[in-house]
Simulated assay, not measured.
Amino acid sequence: MMRFILSLVLLPTLAAAQTPAADQARAAADALEAASNMLDDADGARDRVRALTETIQAFESGLGAMRTGLRQAAINEAQLTKKLQSREEEVAALLGALQSMGGGASPVALLHPDGPMGTARAGMLLAELTPALNARADALRTDLENVQTLRALQTDAAKRLQEGLTEVQAARIALNQAMANRTDLPKRFTADPVRTGILIASTETLDGFASGLSEIVTDEIEPAPVNLDGQIGELRLPVQGLILRRAGEADAAGVKRPGVIMATRPGAIVISPTAATIRYAGPLLDFGNVVILEPQADTLFVLAGLDVVYGEAGQVIAGGTPVGLMGGSLAEKGDELSPLREGTGTERSETLYIEVRQANRPQDPVAWFRTDEDG
């Protein structure tokens, strides 16, 4: 009987336990599985660059959701474990009571010393106590089941997360190759590398360089204008991440810039928010690699801090086209699973500077992009 009681109270049924963290991690695992299928299909896609871009974005979303789910699962598991440890005496007392109730007692043992009336009162008390004991046993069993479910889920999800990190890296390598092989992009103008070099050497600020860009092109062919009317404020951010610093906010050194700084994960893909002409792509001053896009006349999007850049000045690209990748090294195996690491935000170790300029005047990027997205 004791063995039956222990199995009833202590043995978990993993499939029965449901928690928000478990549901979130399972949904993230489904997203990663879908991204894996997209990666398999990308090789045969007609537009391989677009297919790989969508695949990498799907992986980034799935990996972010998986990290969040794992972090919450670890927190929930720790809370439940602490709760159960604090109730060890209650568990022991409950098991003792259940064991006494489940023992094969003789009829004499059921008789009360006060006679039939006492026996009747004891029976009524036991009848009231049994549902309460059962309810407490059910609550403990549910907590134990959830702990076991969360532990099993973390083991499975950690394996899937590691596989996803490997696959997204393979997708980035494939994208590098696909972009190197791309020759079908139309050109709006031909850049003059000598004049570009002189402009870089003669300017000390991003503002000065952006202002002089229009003066260093030759053989310009005006394309059909891109009209952003009605899209301002609804444009997609060029990278998945979080706004670290808004326009006009001073950094640690007290420097204020007119653009926003996005915190991103290592290797994050950077895309063009809309159809645009590449005005510049390459290293610039102390900003690292910079891409400057012109979506419409007198409007520039400045993206600074990339590790890898795609395309060259003069090319016309469609919205959603990758323009580069962020730098940084991927986490060592196991680091990406740490709930403490995730909780501090250190997984977003790279920063992308985004500036919007219209008629040579800086604009607040928050007014141009949807900034309510959490990557």
Results as ranks from 00 to 15, higher is better:
residue 148 Q to S: 15
residue 148 Q to I: 05
residue 30 D to W: 11
residue 111 L to D: 06
residue 151 R to C: 02
residue 5 I to W: 04
residue 55 T to I: 08
residue 239 V to Q: 00
residue 116 P to E: 11
residue 94 L to Y: 08
residue 326 M to D: 00
residue 168 V to T: 03
residue 352 L to R: 00
residue 146 N to A: 12
residue 68 T to Q: 15
residue 301 F to T: 02
residue 371 T to I: 15
residue 276 A to S: 11
residue 96 G to A: 11
residue 193 P to G: 09
residue 200 I to S: 02
residue 237 L to H: 02
residue 39 L to R: 01
residue 241 G to Y: 00
residue 6 L to S: 04
residue 137 A to P: 01
residue 65 A to C: 08
residue 122 A to F: 08
residue 165 L to F: 09
residue 11 L to K: 12
residue 130 T to D: 11
residue 293 L to G: 03
residue 65 A to F: 04
residue 318 A to C: 10
residue 158 A to I: 01
residue 58 A to I: 01
residue 219 D to C: 05
residue 55 T to G: 00
residue 327 G to C: 06
residue 364 D to K: 01
residue 34 A to R: 11
residue 330 L to C: 12
residue 6 L to D: 10
residue 121 R to F: 12
residue 118 G to R: 10
residue 158 A to N: 10
residue 328 G to Y: 01
residue 226 V to S: 05
residue 369 F to P: 04
residue 286 D to H: 15
residue 36 S to M: 06
residue 318 A to F: 05
residue 258 P to M: 03
residue 249 E to Y: 03
residue 126 L to T: 10
residue 315 Q to K: 07
residue 177 Q to A: 13
residue 48 R to C: 03
residue 216 I to Q: 01
residue 174 A to F: 06
residue 247 A to D: 05
residue 68 T to R: 08
residue 192 D to E: 07
residue 284 L to E: 04
residue 136 R to V: 07
residue 159 K to F: 15
residue 25 A to G: 03
residue 291 V to Q: 02
residue 269 I to C: 01
residue 308 V to R: 10
residue 274 T to K: 01
residue 176 N to M: 11
residue 274 T to N: 07
residue 137 A to I: 07
residue 95 L to K: 03
residue 151 R to E: 11
residue 98 L to E: 05
residue 236 R to D: 15
residue 18 Q to C: 07
residue 159 K to L: 12
residue 1 M to Y: 09
residue 195 R to N: 11
residue 17 A to G: 09
residue 190 T to Q: 14
residue 328 G to K: 03
residue 356 V to N: 04
residue 21 A to W: 04
residue 134 N to K: 14
residue 295 P to Q: 09
residue 74 A to M: 07
residue 178 A to D: 00
residue 152 A to T: 02
residue 369 F to I: 05
residue 93 A to P: 05
residue 261 I to M: 14
residue 244 L to S: 12
residue 80 L to V: 07
residue 360 N to A: 07
residue 109 A to R: 13
residue 222 E to T: 14
residue 188 R to I: 09
residue 113 P to H: 05
residue 24 Q to L: 10
residue 50 R to H: 13
residue 240 Q to A: 15
residue 271 I to V: 15
residue 171 A to Q: 02
residue 168 V to I: 11
residue 355 E to R: 03
residue 128 E to N: 09
residue 335 D to T: 06
residue 251 D to S: 13
residue 221 I to C: 08
residue 9 V to P: 02
residue 173 I to L: 12
residue 216 I to R: 01
residue 237 L to N: 07
residue 139 A to V: 09
residue 14 L to V: 12
residue 309 V to H: 00
residue 353 Y to N: 04
residue 152 A to F: 06
residue 158 A to T: 10
residue 207 D to L: 01
residue 212 G to Q: 01
residue 18 Q to W: 10
residue 87 R to C: 13
residue 159 K to W: 07
residue 184 D to I: 13
residue 97 A to R: 03
residue 54 E to A: 10
residue 260 V to N: 06
residue 103 G to H: 11
residue 367 A to K: 13
residue 161 L to N: 04
residue 29 A to Q: 08
residue 47 D to W: 04
residue 119 T to C: 13
residue 33 E to F: 08
residue 158 A to D: 10
residue 138 D to N: 15
residue 186 P to H: 09
residue 321 T to Q: 06
residue 43 D to Y: 08
residue 25 A to P: 01
residue 193 P to C: 06
